[in-house]
Design a protein around this nucleic acid. Structure first.
Length: 830
RNA sequence: GCGGGCGUGGCGGAAUGGUAGACGCCGGGGACUUAAAAUCCCCUGAGCUUUGCUCGUGUGGGUUCGAGUCCCACCGUCCGCACCA
C-alpha cells in the first residue's frame, strides 16, 4: 500500500530546480543477472537509509537506480538457452526491479537507465568520439590477453593469476589491433588526486596507488664494448651502479630473439622461460635461470669495466625497458642469480658497520646507509648518490631521469556482441574513420546468431557493410564492442542529467556532482573506481564537465555471510552441501529436515551457490517482511565488516518490528505530564542517531533506538512518552519505512512520514544535569557517586575521600595525589 | 616478499586515554495459559573464602595517576598486490 502511495506521489523524484541543499547518494548499480542477492539488499538498504534521512533533514536528494546491462552472461545465456541477449537482459531487469520495489527503496525511478539501450550507449559512443578527437583514444597492434573460452580480449586488470577473471581459462598472448584509452596520460593526476580523497577508505587509496605504481629512476645505456649502441636499462637504484655485476634482458627482448636465431640453445632456453607458470605459488618458487649470451657491455661509469649480458627468466619485457643491470648485494633476485652463476657480489651500501667489499650474506641489503666501495661516491647518502649518478648520466649523455608506471593504457576492445559498438568505420582508402555524430547511435543488430563461438557481430551478414562516411566507398564497421567498464565509467553523470540530444548537461552535472556518498563492494576498489576517476578527469580535460573526482566519499560495505551445512559423501569423501532451508537448527546442533540426521555446521563464509549457503531475498521478505529484513541488514555488524546471516537474527528483528507496532499503538496524543528523564533520553538519542547515520554507523544507530524503545516502554503515560513514541517513529522511518508510514497514519498524522521533518533537538536537554562519577583508588574502580553536573574539583575530591569504600581500599595509606576529571572521575593515588 | 585490515563473553559487537562488555542473538529461571505460541519480568565474562574480593580486551614489554585505546616487539587471521628492476 505504501509503496503504491510513494509511487503515486512521486515522493522520491529528485527536483533539478530545487533550491534546497543537494545530496547525491549512489550505490553501485547492479548487473541484471536475474535475481537480486542479499548483498544487493545490504548495499541498497544502507544507501536508502542515508537517502531517506537526508530527505527528512531538508536535502534535495538524488538517489537513482539503473542497470549495468551489457556483458558476457547475457551471451552465455543466449548460447546455452537459445534466447536473445536483449530479451534475457530486459526480462531480468523487470524481475529485479520488482524485487527492489518490494524492499521499499526510496529511488527516483524516473531516471532509471540501462546501459544496453541505444539512448544510453549512443551517448557513450559520442563521448568516445570526443575522447578520440582529443587524442585520448587510439588504436594499436598489440599483444593482448586472449581468453580462449570467452573468445575475447581481457584488460590486464581482468587477468588474475594468468586466468580470465570470468571464464577461469588460461589466458594466451595474441597480437591484435586494439582500441585503447590513454589512461596513462592521467597517471600522475590519478595518483595525486588520491591525496584529496580523504573520505575514501585508506585501503582503496593504497590499492589504487600500488596499481598505478609510480617509480622514479634512471634510464641509461650499457654500450656494447667499442660500439656506439648498447642495451637500455631502467633502474630505481642508480646509486648502486658501482655494484653492478651483470646485465640481464627478458626472454622476449628483441636482442634475445635476434641472438636466438643463430643460437639453438638460446632459443630452447627462451622457450623454457615462456613455459613458466604465472600463479603466485609458481612465481614464488621459480628458480632464477639465466643464459650467458657471451656478450659484454661497458659499465657507463667506467668504460674499461666490462660486465656480461645474460638472458634471464625473471626480467619482464613489459616493464621498464625489458632489461636490468644486476646489483646482487642490494637486490634479492640479483643476489640469487649471481650466486647461481658465480658472479661477483659487491657491497656498495654500508649496512651499519659492515662495509667489506665482498658481500657474503644470504639476504640482499636494501636498507638505508652510506655509499661505499664506489670511488667518487663514497660517503654519499643513497639519495645524494642517486642524484649524482642521474646528473652525470644526463651531462655525459648516456642516460636520463625517468618515471615508470605500472599502469598500462586501457585496452577496451572486446570481440563480443553484447556491448557498446565502437563507432568507427574501416575504409580501404581513408583508413579508420569516425562515425559522424549525426549517425549515432550505432545500434546493435537484433538478428544475431550464437551458434558458433567468436564475435557474432563480425559474422553478421549485413550489419558491418556500410559506405565510408568520408569517400562513400565500400567500407566495414568496427565489429569490436567496448569493455563494459566503459559503461559504468560515466553512468553517475547520466543519472544527474538526461537530455535526449547529448550525454548530459554541464550545468546539471555541476549542481549534483560529485556524488556525496558512493556505496559498493570492495571488489571494485581498482577497476571500476579507477576507470570512473579517469573518465571524469578525461571529460574535464576535454571541457565537458568541471569536476576532477566523481565520488567525494566512498564506502565499501562488507559481505553477507552464512554458515554452511554439509555431510561427507561416503562414496568419494567429498562434502555434500545443504541449503539453510533444508536444515533445522536445534540449539547448537543442526539436522536435515528430511531424515532428521545431523549435518555438520561449517564456518561462516561468503554466500555462494556452490556451498549452498545462500538466502533468497524474496523468500525472506515474504516470511518476515521488508522492514525486518532491512533492519537486519543494519543491525549488529559494522557496515564495513561481514554480516553473518542467521535465522535467529532475522527472527529477533521481526520481533522488534512487532514490538514497535505495539508501542506505536500506545500513542496517546492527549496524555499530559512531563518526564524529564525520558525527554533527555529522547533528544540524546535523536542527536546520536543522526550522527551515527551520517557516519554510516548503522549498527550503533540501531542500538540507540533499542535503548530509547526500552526506556519508552517502561515509562508511565505522559506527554513526554507520547512525544518519545512519535520520535521513535521518525527515527525508524528511514529504516522501516512501511511500518513507519502505517503507524504515522495510525497516530493521526497527515501526509507521508517519508516527507516528515527529522525531529528537532533541544540542546539544553543534551547536557546532563546529574552525572555518575567513577571513584578509583590507584586506578582501580572502588565506588561511584551520582552528583550534580559541574561540581568543582575540591568538592569532588572531598566526596571521594569521604567514601567508605575508598577509605577501606586505602587501608590507612597516605594519600599522595588526587586526580580529578570534572563530571567523570576521581582517582586517589596512595 | 610488499602493502593494508582485524584479534574484546557462547556469538555479532559497544567503548572522545577515564566505570570494559552498551545494544542484539543464544542460554537459564519465573509470570501469564488447561497447555503451547506470543508477550512480560529477572539472571547471564571467569573465579573465589560472595556486605565483597581477585582475574579479565591475542602474547611480551613500555609510557601514564589511569591503557581495549598510545609506543615497541612478536603471534594469529583475513584481504589486496606481486620476479615491477
Amino acid at each position: 500500500r505504501w509503496q503504491a502511495a510513494w509511487d503515486a506521489a512521486q515522493t522520491f523524484r529528485a527536483d533539478d530546480a530545487s533550491d534546497k541543499p543537494r545530496s547525491y547518494v549512489l550505490e553501485m548499480f547492479p548487473y541484471p543477472s536475474g535475481r537480486i542477492h542479499i548483498g544487493h539488499v545490504r548495499n541498497y538498504t544502507m544507501g536508502d537509509v542515508l537517502a531517506r534521512t537526508k530527505r527528512m533533514q531538508g536535502f534535495e536528494v538524488l538517489h537513482p537506480m539503473g542497470w549495468d546491462a551489457f556483458g558476457m552472461p547475457a551471451e552465455n545465456a543466449a548460447m546455452e538457452q537459445g534466447v536473445h541477449p536483449g530479451g534475457w537482459t530486459r526480462a531480468n531487469i523487470a524481475a529485479m526491479k520488482k524485487q527492489l520495489k518490494r524492499l521499499g527503496f526510496a529511488l527516483d525511478w524516473s531516471r532509471e537507465l540501462a546501459t544496453c539501450e541505444p539512448d544510453y550507449y549512443g551517448h557513450e559512443q559520442a563521448l568516445f568520439l570526443d575522447l578520440h578527437a582529443a587524442g585520448l583514444v587510439y588504436r594499436k597492434e598489440s599483444a593482448v590477453n586472449w581468453d580462449p573460452v570467452d573468445q575475447t580480449v581481457l584488460a590486464n586488470e581482468q587477468v588474475i593469476d594468468g586466468r580470465g577473471w570470468r571464464s577461469g581459462a588460461l589466458v594466451e598472448k595474441r597480437k591484435l589491433s586494439q582500441w585503447f584509452l590513454a589512461i596513462t596520460r592521467f597517471a600522475d593526476e590519478l595518483l595525486d588526486g588520491l591525496g584529496g580523497l580523504d573520505k575514501w577508505p585508506d585501503k582503496v587509496r593504497t590499492m589504487q596507488e600500488n596499481w598505478i605504481g609510480k617509480s622514479q629512476g634512471l634510464r641509461c645505456t650499457f654500450k656494447f664494448v667499442s660500439a656506439d649502441h648498447g642495451i637500455e636499462v631502467f633502474t630505481t637504484r642508480p646509486d648502486t651502479m658501482f655494484g653492478a655485476s651483470f646485465v640481464a634482458i627478458a626472454a622476449d627482448h628483441p636482442l634475445a630473439r635476434s641472438l636466438a636465431e643463430s643460437a639453438p640453445e638460446l632459443a630452447a632456453f627462451i622457450a623454457d622461460c615462456k613455459r613458466g607458470g604465472t600463479t603466485a605459488a609458481e612465481i614464488e618458487t621459480a628458480e632464477k635461470m639465466g643464459f650467458d649470451t657471451g656478450l659484454t657491455v661497458e659499465h657507463p661509469l667506467d668504460p674499461a669495466w666490462h660486465v656480461p649480458v645474460y638472458v634471464a627468466n625473471f626480467v619482464l619485457m613489459d616493464y621498464g625497458t625489458g632489461a636490468v643491470f644486476g646489483c646482487p648485494a642490494h637486490d634479492q633476485r640479483d643476489l640469487e642469480f649471481a650466486r647461481k652463476y658465480d658472479l661477483p657480489v659487491i657491497r656498495v651500501v654500508a649496512d651499519g658497520e659492515k662495509t667489506a667489499l665482498n658481500f657474503d650474506e644470504d639476504e640482499a641489503f636494501t636498507g638505508p646507509g652510506r655509499i661505499v666501495n664506489s670511488r667518487w661516491m663514497d660517503g654519499m647518502t643513497i639519495d645524494e648518490a642517486k642524484r649524482a649518478v642521474i646528473a652525470k648520466a644526463q651531462h655525459d649523455g648516456w642516460g636520463r631521469a625517468e618515471t615508470q608506471w605500472r599502469l598500462r593504457d586501457w585496452g577496451v576492445s572486446r570481440q563480443r556482441y553484447w556491448g557498446t559498438p565502437i563507432p568507427f568505420i574501416h575504409c580501404a582508402t581513408c583508413g579508420v574513420v569516425p562515425v559522424p555524430k549525426s549517425q549515432l547511435p550505432v545500434v546493435l543488430p537484433e538478428d544475431i546468431d550464437f551458434a558458433t563461438p567468436g564475435n557474432p557481430l563480425a559474422r553478421h551478414p549485413t550489419w558491418k557493410h556500410v559506405p565510408c562516411p568520408k569517400c562513400g566507398g565500400t567500407a566495414e564497421r568496427e565489429t569490436d564492442t567496448l569493455d563494459t567498464f566503459v559503461d559504468s565509467s560515466w553512468y553517475f553523470l547520466r543519472f544527474a542529467s538526461q537530455p535526449g540530444d547529448r550525454p548530459f548537461d554541464r550545468e546539471a552535472i555541476a549542481k549534483w556532482l560529485p556524488v556525496e556518498q558512493y556505496i559498493g563492494g570492495i571488489e571494485h576498489a581498482i577497476l571500476h573506481l579507477l576507470y570512473a576517476r579517469f573518465w571524469t578527469r578525461a571529460l574535464k580535460h576535454i571541457g565537458l564537465i568541471d569536476i576532477d573526482e566523481p565520488f567525494a566519499s566512498l564506502f565499501t560495505q562488507g559481505m553477507v555471510t552464512h554458515e554452511t551445512y554439509s555431510r561427507v559423501d561416503p562414496a568419494n569423501g567429498q562434502p555434500i552441501y545443504f541449503q539453510p532451508a533444508e536444515v533445522e537448527k536445534r540449539g547448537e546442533q543442526a539436522v536435515l529436515k528430511r531424515d532428521g540426521v545431523a549435518v555438520e555446521i561449517g564456518r561462516v563464509i561468503k554466500m555462494s551457490k556452490s556451498k549452498k549457503n545462500t538466502v533468497d531475498p524474496d523468500e525472506i521478505v515474504a516470511k518476515y517482511g521488508a522492514d525486518a529484513v532491512r533492519w537486519f541488514m543494519l543491525s549488529d555488524s559494522p557496515p564495513e565488516r561481514d554480516l553473518p546471516w542467521s535465522e535467529a537474527g532475522i527472527e529477533g528483528c521481526w520481533r522488534f518490528v512487532q514490538r514497535l507496532w505495539r508501542l506505536f499503538g500506545q500513542y496517546e496524543p492527549a496524555a499530559t505530564g512531563n518526564d524529564k528523564a525520558l525527554d533527555r533520553k529522547r533528544d540524546q538519542t535523536v542527536a546520536a542517531v543522526a550522527s551515527d547515520i551520517a557516519a554510516l554507523g548503522f549498527n550503533k544507530a540501531v542500538a540507540r533506538i533499542y535503548e530509547l524503545t526500552g526506556a519508552t516502554e517502561k515509562a508511565a503515560p505522559s506527554a513526554s512518552r507520547s512525544q518519545a513514541i512519535r520520535t521513535i517513529l521518525l527515527l525508524v522511518a528511514p529504516m522501516m519505512p512501511h511500518l513507519a508510514e502505517e503507524s504515522w497514519a495510525q497516530i493521526g498524522e497527515t501526509g507521508l512520514i517519508a516527507d516528515a521533518v527529522w525531529p528537532p533537538v533541544d540542546p539544553a536537554l543534551l547536557v546532563a544535569d546529574e552525572v555518575t562519577i567513577a571513584v578509583q583508588v590507584k586506578g582501580k574502580l572502588r565506588d561511584t557517586l551520582t552528583v550534580a553536573a559541574g561540581l568543582p574539583r575540591e568538592e569532588l575530591e572531598a566526596l571521594a575521600l569521604a567514601s567508605d569504600k575508598v577509605q577501606r581500599a586505602l587501608d590507612g595509606a597516605q594519600v599522595r595525589n588526587v586526580i580529578v576529571v570534572p563530571d567523570r572521575l576521581v582517582n586517589v593515588v596512595a
